[in-house]
Amino acid sequence: MTVLDNTATTPEPATEAATVEFRRLRREFGPTVALDGLDLTVRPGELLALLGPSGCGKTTALRMLAGFEHPDSGEVLVDGDDVTRVPAHRRDAGMVFQSYSLFPHLDALDNVAFGLRMRKVRTAQRRSRAAELLDLVGLADKGARFPHQLSGGQQQRVALARALALRPRVLLLDEPLSALDAKVRLTLREEIRRLQQELGITTLFVTHDQEEALSMADRVAVMRAGRLEQCAAPAELYGRPATAFVAGFVGTTSRIPGRLDGASVEVLGRRLPVDGRIPAGAEVDVLVRPESVRVRAEDDGHARVVATSFLGAAVRITVRLADGAEVKADLPAHEAAELTAGAAVDVSLPDRPVLVTERTS
């Protein structure tokens, strides 16, 4: 794979980074509510990822910003200007699709220059601009190649260069890496992030891949059933999920039965403070990340190791508690050596606030 040349000239954005606002967006497709009053702001120059399961509304929101969909109610604003009913070709947004969408009869240079040609930019100027952008995305020597002569990763680079050719105020990425293999996807997401930061362009990125969202975005907006569950920086989203859905969707989470006692919860033989909302019922589940769970071998322990999984520097241990609940713990490899399947263990949690939710059946 070609690695982007950091010495390449970075083109200057045509305008200041834009602010994007979704205000009370609602969109229905028959009986299905795709967006249910979405309120969200994308800050100037940031990369914000829309993350969520299929059907949560993230792509609908992106298409509304692009101008391909219109809400039943609500507004889309760019730098305070209402663009809700502005046609897509007047939105000043560049979009990169999952499927590349390159013209098969045009070489890479002409694919990148296509939008400039539609705007009647002179031949010499548009070819110069296209060559500059191909250089920026690491394809300076591939301008004469046609899409079928390029790898998937190279085709997506061409699509990215084409989206940037018109110096858009907003860059929209619709799951652009999902069709690529794992190694190419990892490399290209790092390159897209570097390029976005260098250009300082406001970017909205749709993905269902949590690792992709957490590694690339300044903030991640988690959506569910057309609503925004939480929007926060990756570290906050992972470390302090606002809802049980976010805790379960972002990263790995175990549920441990507990019992509420005022603003604290009794769990695994100790009392811990509750972080965030306190459910109405006394019987709850405590939500914990695997790196927060402590497991040690204990001859008279009331839990048993049921499985181990090697993760490289860590080993993931799955433990079954006396009540049948299963808990996952990530331990350094050297600490997990004696924790084989069937071993009796003691399980505990650190003395810090925990997130709780209603008990599942």
Rank of each mutant, 00 (worst) to 15 (best):
D351A: 15
S215P: 03
V3I: 13
V305M: 04
V33D: 00
P234C: 11
H70W: 05
P353T: 08
C231H: 03
R167A: 14
A144V: 00
S254P: 06
D209Y: 00
V220P: 09
V327M: 10
A280H: 09
V305H: 07
R85I: 03
G80W: 13
R85D: 10
A303T: 03
A341K: 13
V158H: 00
D218E: 09
S151F: 00
A179K: 11
K328G: 06
A235D: 14
P31I: 11
L214V: 08
T15F: 11
H334L: 08
L51H: 02
P241F: 12
P350C: 01
R316L: 08
A131S: 12
A182R: 14
D323V: 11
S178C: 07
G239D: 12
L35F: 05
P31M: 13
A18T: 07
D346S: 15
P353M: 11
D5C: 13
E338S: 15
I201L: 11
R169G: 08
G67P: 07
L109G: 06
A124T: 11
A343K: 15
G57P: 07
T243C: 00
A329S: 14
S151V: 02
M1P: 15
E298C: 13
T7R: 15
I278F: 03
A336V: 00
Q98R: 01
A221L: 02
G269Y: 02
E358T: 12
Q98I: 03
A303W: 03
E335G: 03
V222H: 00
P71D: 14
A225M: 06
T360V: 14
R117V: 02
L204C: 04
G269A: 07
A131Y: 03
A140N: 08
T7L: 12
V347H: 05
D299R: 14
D261R: 14
C56S: 15
R129I: 02
G55C: 11
G55H: 07
A314E: 15
R122I: 03
D82Q: 06
A297Y: 05
R167V: 03
T318E: 15
L311C: 05
V33C: 13
E191V: 04
R43P: 04
E212R: 06
P273Q: 04
L38M: 12
E335D: 14
G239I: 08
L25D: 10
E28F: 06
L272N: 13
L35E: 12
R122N: 09
M1F: 10
